[in-house]
Amino acid sequence: MKKLILITLASLGPAVAGAQQTGATPPPGRLLASNCFQCHGTDGRGDGTFERLAGKSASDIYNDLREMKAENKRGEIMTIHALGYTDAQLRAIADYFSKQPR
């Protein structure tokens, strides 16, 4: 199942990246990912912020978020944030940051 999802994403990836951005259809994941900007910098960039997310691999970000969610550790701020999103939303967020220049 996991493999299938990865294959599907891989085949979608270039199409999404190559799509012309039009005003009415913003890049997928952007609005969700903007929830992270307050602490990780606009588009995941900035010095002296919490972890820089821009340009990180999508699978690393996604796997980290999934892990935080699965741990469900009380009193961990990132666990609480990860629990706020469905896995599909986490994947969209990870994908968005991976496409931002470092």
Binding site: A24, L31, N35
Partner: peptide, 19 residues
Amino acid sequence: DAILRLLGGGTPDPSPVTN
């Protein structure tokens, strides 16, 4: 995001998340 979608003739994101 919603205003830009509206200016483009679209509709707002139907499932926003805030924190």
